[in-house]
Amino acid sequence: MSEAISATVSAPRKIDLNADLGEGGVHDEAILAIVSSANIACGGHTGDTHSMRTAVRLAKANGVAIGAHPSFVDRDNFGRTAQHPPLDLLFTQLCEQVDQLSGVATQEGCVLQHLKPHGALYNQAANDAALGNVLIRVIQHCNPQLRLVALAGSKLVKQAQAANLQVIQEAFADRRYNSDGSLRARSFADACIDTAAEAVQQTISLVEHDQLRSVDGELINIHAETLCVHGDGIHALRLLESIRSELITRGFIIAAN
């Protein structure tokens, strides 16, 4: 191929599409045929050995990368209420969750690829250096090869990179954002996106322009390497089907990082 011709051939664009799974959602099996990465609940907010094993097996069958999705130990609130446990206790609890899922994965011939904190822990750690340090310590202790999935543009991204961790910056196709780049709190009725058209629009804005529009109408810059749809949402499967279809139509390859 001549230089002139090769210069006109652009490399295929790639995006990782992930979902939080093993959380009791009714569409996990169908979702695992769509996404490229799965964050599997490992007992803090929900999940047990059986649900972990089921999710791992389904992910393996579909060639989906798997990661741990640990949480504050708070099943009553599904891990979505702010917590302030002693940091040493939290470290121990998170390590127990990651180790339990890692053990199941090993038994099934799989290896964990990443760690993504769940719910309130995810949001608090995004800008709380003390919680961020706990997550860093968990990875260093359990498996230094794990990549940390963190809110794109958050303080945690730079904190983890400074600790020599590999970081995957994440944005959400099914959540609305505040103008500072944080997620709209679920206490607001408009926190979640539940129509395929809007989820697709936000996805395309993110992957093609590194931007999205906040709830206040402000255009904010967000560069993400992975996009998430919450697997427990009642519209999750429909949103993911529409998002994947549009991404493929636009020439994107759906693949894990």
Rank of each mutant, 00 (worst) to 15 (best):
R175S: 02
R176A: 08
Y177P: 01
Y177V: 03
Y177Q: 05
Y177E: 02
N178D: 14
D180A: 11
D180C: 10
D180S: 11
G181T: 10
G181C: 08
S182K: 10
R184G: 07
R186L: 08
A189G: 12
D190E: 14
A191S: 13
A191K: 05
A191L: 10
C192I: 12
C192V: 15
I193M: 04
I193G: 00
I193D: 02
D194R: 07
T195A: 09
A196E: 09
A196G: 09
A196V: 06
A196W: 04
A197K: 13
A197R: 10
E198D: 08
E198M: 07
A199N: 02
A199H: 01
Q201H: 12
T203Q: 02
T203R: 01
I204D: 01
I204P: 00
L206H: 00
V207G: 00
V207H: 02
V207C: 01
V207W: 01
E208P: 03
E208C: 05
Q211L: 13
Q211A: 10
L212S: 02
L212N: 01
R213V: 15
S214V: 14
V215C: 13
G217D: 14
G217L: 15
E218P: 08
E218V: 15
E218M: 13
L219Y: 09
I220W: 06
I220Y: 08
N221D: 14
H223C: 08
A224S: 04
E225D: 06
T226Q: 04
T226V: 05
L227G: 00
C228D: 01
V229S: 01
V229A: 04
H230S: 08
H230L: 09
G231I: 07
D232R: 07
G233H: 09
H235T: 15
H235Q: 15
H235D: 15
A236W: 01
L237D: 07
L237Y: 08
L237H: 07
L237E: 06
L239M: 06
L240C: 07
L240E: 00
L240V: 12
